[in-house]
């Protein structure tokens, strides 16, 4: 399944001083995939676009604090 977040697994040693983070996540926003913007992409309404920060639905990729999933952070 396509996702705008990718994960990787750092090496964890039994002697690590802090509790190891077994999975790290990083953002890969839509601009990395689309290339030159094709014509006739779906748009937000003007009101929605002013809030979203973009007119183009394909480029909308909001970020929420992953440490606060309970408060609307995208679980990942």
């Amino acid at each position: 399944m396509f996702t705008l977040y990718k994960t990787w697994h750092p090496i964890a040693s039994p002697f690590d001083p802090c509790k190891p983070i077994v999975e790290k996540t990083f953002s890969t926003p839509p601009n990395l995939y689309i290339g030159f913007q094709p014509p006739n992409l779906p748009q937000f309404s003007p009101q929605e676009a002013l809030r979203a920060g973009t007119l183009w639905k394909a480029f909308y990729d909001p970020y929420y604090n992953p440490f606060e999933k309970a408060k609307g952070g995208i679980p990942r």
Binding site: P29, N31, G35, Q37, A52, G53, F59, P62, Y63
Partner: peptide, 30 residues
């Protein structure tokens, strides 16, 4: 900064600014 912040109103503005960075990067790529 969003990860460090516990102010939802402020984060709303920061989310908008982050989205603009994505669009600017797209336009430079073009």
């Amino acid at each position: 900064i969003i990860n460090l912040s516990d102010d939802p109103d402020l984060n709303d503005g920061l989310r908008f600014l982050r989205e603009r960075e994505i669009i600017h990067s797209q336009r430079f790529l073009e």
